[in-house]
Design a binder for these strands. Structure first.
Lengths: 262, 262
DNA sequence: AGAATAGTGTCTATCAGACACTATGCA
DNA sequence: TGCATAGTGTCTGATAGACACTATTCT
């Protein structure tokens, strides 16, 4: 790049090409300058597993564009006036939106940044750059979600049955965001403890296996999966919890995630 | 979130609360509205391996703030007027900046998005959200880089000797970006073919091993690494290239990356 | 008693790590 | 000739996958 338009760098060289003067002087002069700026939003891929099926939270659009279509929840990052009031961080915006869209208190779900989508025409109204995030919600909390959404219609859509089939086409580039989120979660499933964000606080071996199967989309050998599970117990990643899970058959031991594990 | 400020969604509900009318009408009215927007930049963590040492490209800042400090190269994403002229995509901005900062033609390096940094005060001048990327450059191209950078002083800094030691403190939140980039590359090294972006077009077993060692920061058993290498040959990921690499001792077979591999 | 799931054992193939070793070209 | 590096062989332990099997509880 040429001098004068680097990122967080020398953007004010047109106002202060020599770079002299105090920093305070510099900042004061800096505000005189204005370049066009994009709107910045966060979009959320909120995932859970219900009925052994991977689900995503979708909102029905009431406005143009894509009126009536389904879309990922999201919202603008609040930037205040961008100078004296700087507004919220991107992370804070994502947490705030997640709480607002689900009606659940902040911290109810695992939330992480996914990817920033910045194609010039991704929103027909104007230039919008969106920082996509993914959130993993326990199935025990999922039923409470729609209640929290004010006005807008919301639903848990099945990835397999509703989205991949094309029955529910998504607005904007949200299909791409969703696909990337699923790919990411699949990838992290075997390398990070994300799976524990998709089961109840306490869970059985079969329940954890069910989450893996729903996310990856194929079945696992129950015996082999149990051995992996046992290793996690041995490593201190998982610990026994009191009680048994009563099903229609032999009750199963319940476990909980142990944060102090490897 | 509440109606009226969702991300790429219903931002115009204040102007068109009923959602009726044609989409064209809607877009026309939409432009009347303005909220404060952040500046958006791309920052680049450009990495290479020289002398068995992981290096990062740094630029010396000539302006406030952080005048005289070292920083990652970067620049604004061009958004045109954000309406009729939408400007470039974030990816295009990253590629453009990489070419401008290095003086190398586009496509000379592997480039991927890393993470978006959006703390409200990360730039003291104003609200700036930066989409950080990382780029992996072959060591054979690295020496040509500084020549391409106009005016600004640039250097290949050693991560170990210059940055981690604290000898070269970085401006803004660039240390965090750098740390995240290194973590990411380490992570991908064994799961993706990124290592092939850090060796010459043709390379020996020892050269590829050297890249792994420089990135991870520990030595590998030569014999064991060779077996991994051989498996990649067997899988078609790597193929023999003509010629031998002449060193001070026994010449070594050279190989090349084969894109059609697994 | 029978169904269904919880939970165990075993065999094989693959791979990482440790390490001893041979082969070859240059100084 | 000696040395440094290229390149090979072997052993062990950890793990994934396939699959057969036992144990326990509910209906």
């Amino acid at each position: 790049m040429t001098r004068g338009d680097d990122g967080a760098g020398e953007g004010a060289s047109a106002a202060s090409a020599d770079g002299h003067g105090t920093e305070a002087d510099y900042l004061a002069r800096y505000r005189e300058l204005q370049w066009p700026r994009p709107s910045v939003t966060v979009d959320l891929v909120v995932l859970t597993v219900l009925d052994a099926d991977l689900k995503v939270l979708l909102i029905r659009r009431k406005e143009h564009p894509f009126q009536g279509a389904w879309a990922l929840p999201g919202g603008f990052v609040r930037v205040g006036d961008a100078y004296d009031d700087r507004g919220e961080s991107v992370e804070a915006a994502a947490h705030r939106e997640l709480a607002e869209e689900t009606g659940l208190p902040e911290g109810s779900a695992y939330l992480a940044q996914l990817h920033t989508f910045g194609a010039p025409d991704r929103d027909p109204r104007m230039r919008v750059i969106s920082v996509a995030h993914y959130a993993l919600l326990r199935p025990t909390l999922a039923p409470f979600v729609t209640a929290g959404t004010d006005a807008a219609e919301a639903r848990w859509a099945s990835l397999r049955a509703d989205v991949d089939s094309g029955a529910l086409p998504l607005a904007f580039d949200h299909a791409e965001m969703l696909a990337m989120a699923v790919r990411r979660v699949r990838d992290e499933l075997d390398r990070t403890p994300v799976a524990f964000s998709l089961v109840p606080e306490t869970f059985t071996v079969a329940e954890l296996r069910g989450v893996h199967e729903a996310v990856v989309g194929e079945t696992y050998d129950a015996g082999n999966f149990r051995r992996r599970f046992q290793r996690m117990v041995a490593d201190g990643l998982i610990e026994e919890a009191p009680g048994k899970r009563v099903t229609g058959t032999k009750p199963a031991q319940v476990y909980r995630f142990s944060a102090r594990g490897a």
